[in-house]
Write a protein that binds this DNA or RNA. Structure first.
Length: 117
DNA sequence: ATTTGCTCAGCTC
DNA sequence: GAGCTGAGCAAAT
């Protein structure tokens, strides 16, 4: 399985993105950049995909934050709600930003999936 | 910590 | 086919 991504249409990327989102552990958050690199696109594209997505219930888009730890955007409800959800998940906040320790790289998840657990 | 500029991808005209 | 907008990023101040 090395290359998980192939040059498919948007469909493929979206699918993968959703999967990765669901792979993010509770109490942790991933960055747009990480996801973008994972699926082979740019951070903005990820944001766009998340924005257009219409099932926030099964898609934990709230677990995606900016590289700086800032919340970024959140269409259903706003950043306020996003922060609230994250806190509920157990994510610690450092003032206005997410605690760096709670931010994980998606590649790390894949790594531990292969070695540990 | 805050501000500015740039970049990349998707969407619209 | 060309232009605009944006759920961001990086660098500079």
């Amino acid at each position: 399985m090395g290359k998980a991504i192939k040059r498919r249409g948007l469909e493929s990327k979206r699918q993968i993105l959703y999967t990765l989102l669901m792979l993010i552990p509770i109490g942790r958050v991933a960055t747009y950049d990480s996801l973008a690199r994972a699926i082979g696109t740019s951070p903005r594209a990820v944001g766009r995909l998340l924005a257009i997505n219409e099932n926030p219930v099964i898609i934990p888009c709230h677990r995606v934050v900016k590289s700086d730890g800032s919340l970024g955007g959140y269409t259903p409800g706003g950043s306020m709600v996003k922060r609230r959800i994250l806190e509920l998940e157990g994510v610690k906040f450092k003032g206005r930003k997410v605690d760096p320790e709670c931010i994980i790289d998606i590649t790390d998840i894949l790594g531990i999936n292969r070695e540990e657990i």
